[in-house]
Design a protein around this nucleic acid. Structure first.
Length: 329
DNA sequence: CGCCAGGACTACT
DNA sequence: AGTAGTCATGGC
């Protein structure tokens, strides 16, 4: 089946900037691939593969353009539900902007981030692996790593627009080797073929490969990710921290992107610097304290506030100012 | 060559 | 409870 449909601007509240949302480096999933005026990616709808192509002109209130294609029959409404969720179109940005406007320190972020929405994961497990891989990594390298993992272990689906891969299951990644061969016993020629090996190291995830394997095993055997969905935020936070490779920042990313806990406030190095400057007079404050400030001060908007502060700091050049000076002239 | 990337973990006081 | 060292890998 192949269908075209639109999402009208009156079906969601506030502005929407598709390109900014996809390109803002949110680590829930790799950036969708650009194809002409469309962005495209394979998503699973009711366990059926579906290629989604989506386009939108953010400067007008024109409708969102969607083309969906699948070897199976899928109801339009189900596809639409998934898209609404992934691009944060169920979130009321008008209310968010009311909230941000009420704090002079947050108000300036609105103009820089107009239409920016949370980019939610396709599945909780994907957000777990994506977030683990993003830790102490560059966005660029992280994107490449996740794409390699999908290529090597995901199910392959071919469309006229290209070949796409689903995200592998916990069971699959639980059995993925860190090294397919012992490098010490390989001939120099064979070592050159390493990029094509079916192991995690060849995906350029480095030392995180152990975390990915162990976490997948735990998700397969003892940790029920769906159970966490119904917990209150703090219990969910404690539970997700049990996974190896998941610390406070990665954990909050999973809760935010994977489960949709709006209260989650992921504190990375940049948020730490920004919040320090805005709310602690530039003083060095431990991350847990940053996190509690975010949760208490921003409440259900903490996740969006974090997103807007981060993006604002990047776009406004504040990031550069906040970097510790290497040498002063 | 050195430094850093949206940190987490371990081994120390 | 707080703090330094270490961890792959690629880009600059």
């Amino acid at each position: 089946m192949k269908i075209k449909f639109k999402i009208e601007s009156n079906e969601y509240k506030g502005p929407f900037n598709l390109e900014m949302t996809i390109g803002s480096g949110q680590t829930s999933q790799p950036a969708w691939e650009k194809n002409g005026k469309y962005f495209q990616e394979l998503i699973m709808v009711k366990n059926k593969p579906c290629l989604v192509k989506i386009a939108h002109n953010s400067n007008t209130d024109s409708p969102i353009d969607i083309i969906a294609e699948s070897p199976h029959e899928i109801e339009k409404e189900h596809i639409k539900d998934n898209i609404m969720e992934i691009f944060g179109l169920n979130d009321d940005l008008l209310k968010l902007y009311d909230f941000l406007s009420s704090d002079p320190k947050l108000e300036p972020t609105i103009d820089f981030c107009k239409g920016l929405r949370l980019f939610k994961a396709h599945s909780v497990f994907e957000s777990v692996i994506c977030s683990i891989t993003s830790a102490h990594n560059s966005i660029r390298q992280w994107n490449k790593a996740i794409r390699l993992i999908k290529e090597k272990w995901g199910d392959e689906y071919k469309f006229s627009d290209g070949t796409f891969y689903s995200f592998p299951s916990p069971e699959t990644l639980a059995e993925a080797p860190e090294y397919e061969f012992d490098e010490a016993e390989c001939s120099p020629d064979f070592l050159k073929t390493r990029t094509s090996w079916k192991d995690l190291r060849s995906c350029r995830v480095g030392y995180r490969s152990k975390y990915i394997i162990k976490t997948s095993q735990m998700v397969q055997n003892e940790v029920d990710l769906e159970k966490i969905r119904n917990m209150d935020y703090e219990s969910a936070f404690e539970s997700i921290l049990k996974l190896p490779g998941v610390g406070p920042k990665v954990g909050d990313c999973i809760l935010l992107y994977g489960y949709g806990f709006g209260k989650a406030f992921p504190v990375d190095i940049w948020i730490s610097r920004i919040v320090s400057r805005l709310y602690f007079e530039g003083k060095n404050v431990p991350n847990p304290k940053m996190r509690s400030l975010g949760i208490e001060k921003f409440g259900d908007y903490a996740g969006y506030t974090q997103l807007y502060l981060f993006h604002y700091a990047r776009k406004s050049g504040l990031m550069e100012k906040l970097k510790p000076e290497k040498s002063q002239k």
